[in-house]
Each structure stands twice: as C-alpha cells, then as structure tokens.
Design a protein around this nucleic acid. Sequence first.
DNA 1: GTCTATAATTTGATAGAC
DNA 2: GTCTATCAAATTATAGAC
Lengths: 206, 206
Amino acid sequence: MAKVIQKDKSTEEKILAAAKNVFIRQGMMGARMQDIADEAGINKALLHYYFRNKEQLFDVIFMQAAGQLFPRIRMIFESDVPLFEMIERFCEDYIEIISANTYLPLFVFNEINRDPAGFMKKINGAMGFPKPELFLQKIEKEIKKGTIKKISPLQLLLNLLSMCIFPFVAKPLLLVNLQLDEMQFRAIMDQRKKDVARFIIDSIKK
Amino acid sequence: MAKVIQKDKSTEEKILAAAKNVFIRQGMMGARMQDIADEAGINKALLHYYFRNKEQLFDVIFMQAAGQLFPRIRMIFESDVPLFEMIERFCEDYIEIISANTYLPLFVFNEINRDPAGFMKKINGAMGFPKPELFLQKIEKEIKKGTIKKISPLQLLLNLLSMCIFPFVAKPLLLVNLQLDEMQFRAIMDQRKKDVARFIIDSIKK
DNA sequence: GTCTATAATTTGATAGAC
DNA sequence: GTCTATCAAATTATAGAC
C-alpha cells in the first residue's frame, strides 16, 4: 500500500470549526467570510485558498453535519427489533447524538426551508434520507395484533420525532426563559431519553 | 369624535405582505430589500420611504408575528381550568392559531437563536412572554391528589409544546418527504388537535 | 501556505425630478 | 407618493509578493 502523503490539516480544521460556529449563529446568508477568518485566526485570502467560495464552504459544513445525523437515524429506523424496543432505541440514540451537537436540528430545518428540493437531492445523492416505513408497518401490525391501542401510525411517528427533536430547536428559548445553563439543559435531555420512551409506551399500550 | 383621515394603506400593506414572505424564506440577514420591493411590485426607494431601513421593517414584521402568537398562548396558560381541559384547550387553540401562519415557529426560533436576550427584552416590553407556572402547578397538584401518574412537570410541558409546535417547524421536510400538499398537511394538523390531547391524557391518567 | 493590497460585486440607503 | 439615477458601505473574491 502506497504511503499516503499526510497533508497538514490543522489550518483546514481550524477553518471548518470556525465556519461551523459562524454558520450556526448567523445562517448561510448572515455568515460573513471575515468573521469566519477572524474566528479561525487567519485572513480572508487564506479562506478562499482552502475553499474557493462561501457556498462551497457552507456545503462542506452542511454535508458534514448531515453526515453525522442521518445515517445513524437510518440505522435505527431500519433495525428489525420489536416496536417498543425501537421506540426506546430511537429516544436513547437520537437524543444522545444531538446532545453532542445541539445546533443541528435548527440548522438542518433552516436549510430545508430555504430549498426543500435541493436539500432532498443533496442528501439522497450522498447518503439517503431515513425512511420510517418499517416503523410505520410495525405500528400497524401491533394494532392488528391488539397489543397497542388504535392510533394513526403517522401521528405516532410525529409524536416520537417531536418529543425527541423539538427541545433542541427550542434550546435557546429554554435557556433564557427557564434560566438554565448548559449543564442543566444536558441533564434534562439525559432524563428525557427514558422519560419520552416511557411516556409514549404508557400512552399506547393496552 | 374627530374624523380620522384615512391614509391609503394599500401600498404599505403590499410591502408588509411582501416583506413577510421574503423574511420567512430568507431570514433577516438573507432577505434582500430588492426582493421585497420586487414582490411588492414597487422599487427600493419607495420601500425606504415607508420604512426607513431594513431593521425597522423586520421589527415591524416580527412584532406583528409575535403579537398574534404570544398573547393567545398566555391566555391559555393563565386560564384557571382543570388540567385535562387546559391540555385539550392548548392543543386545540395552539394548532389552530399556527395553522393560519405555519411559518411562525421557525421564524420565531431563528430570531431567538440570533439574539436570545434581545428577543426576551423586545417581547417582554411589548406584550409579556407566556409563563407556564400555573400549568406546572396544576400538574403537581394532580400528582399529589393521585389522579395522574408521577411525572416531571417540566418534561410533561416539553412534551405538550413539542407535539403541538414541532410539526410546523418540520413542515417543509414533511411536505417534500411524505409528498404532501398544503391541504393534506392542514388535514393532518386538524386531526392532531384531538390526537395529541388524547395521547397525553392516555399516557398520564391512572 | 500565508500574507497585504485591491479589485469586483452586491446591497442598503439617499437625492432629486415628477 | 412614486420613480430614476446614484452614492456609500459592506462583502466576496482575486492578484501578486514572500
């Protein structure tokens, strides 16, 4: 195997970290290349040396963010385990994944809002969007078996997604309104892993 | 009573409608005055004649949006009715209010994310932010009375807010991914008014 | 690879005629 | 009130030296 020339990535990594922060705070349009350069401790010219333009830089950041989110959700949705276990795993894993990058949901929903078709094209081309079909089927089967109450599978899916994702979208509001710090928010979300799963199962089980 | 000189509002209204659309799609920073002028069918100069600058125009749009949302949520949270009824009223009223302006949640959360302290100051100065204290107290009382299961009041509040608000944040994703049109989305949200309330009550009642 | 200096473009805002 | 023309400032992007 040929020896791979190890390009020095320290500057590129500094840029990506800085860009991530600025894009999260300001969004694609609000972000300023100067701010990214400042936060990376370099100048604008070097930014353009590494990434030809702003759009390309944003795409790298966005696909990187999407890449650490969607494939893992897909895995949960595609795992063939009993319904209750799938619910528990989704709450546990999803909240854990996002807790490491709480900005992700709002960031992603904004990009979808800006260009829904473009988003789906980008994601499907690169990694495939998580499909909840198996989850919906499992719900219908359990209803037919009579092990859970009659409920619209789509509504139940929305409930699950809502309760796992929404608190992260609302995080800035929760922090300022409930006067929480990062530690306290993290603790509430940790608690939520078990609470949401139990809340759902309590509601649907017969 | 003196006769009020009726200023012609048709142009101003066209501007406000156009600005709302552009700010929703692009956000405060992404919005272009030219785009707003185009959508209103006028030119930039006239835009500046009606609203001195972009920030002022955005503030009008934002406070208008907030004004049709927060006071009504306050009323629900402050109404002294039994817990289950409050849950039912919240689902019914909140989903109904937002259905008329589905863009509101994402719009508001973005502004909070951009400047949390500034947001609270603006809202509290103008109309007061909805306080869920009464709701939280009612939950604790019902737990003590033994009429509902033991549950963290904060987590239950988060569940309620999540399930009512999140689908609107995720609307662009739902439309493109589930291939829904506006009518179908509206129907699902209508169904949700009753479904979410029942889902919650089923989960907590003993 | 990294910088300084500057070009090129976009965009918010104003002046002044009608 | 509304427009055309233009300015001033901000911002992306490049040229060229080291």
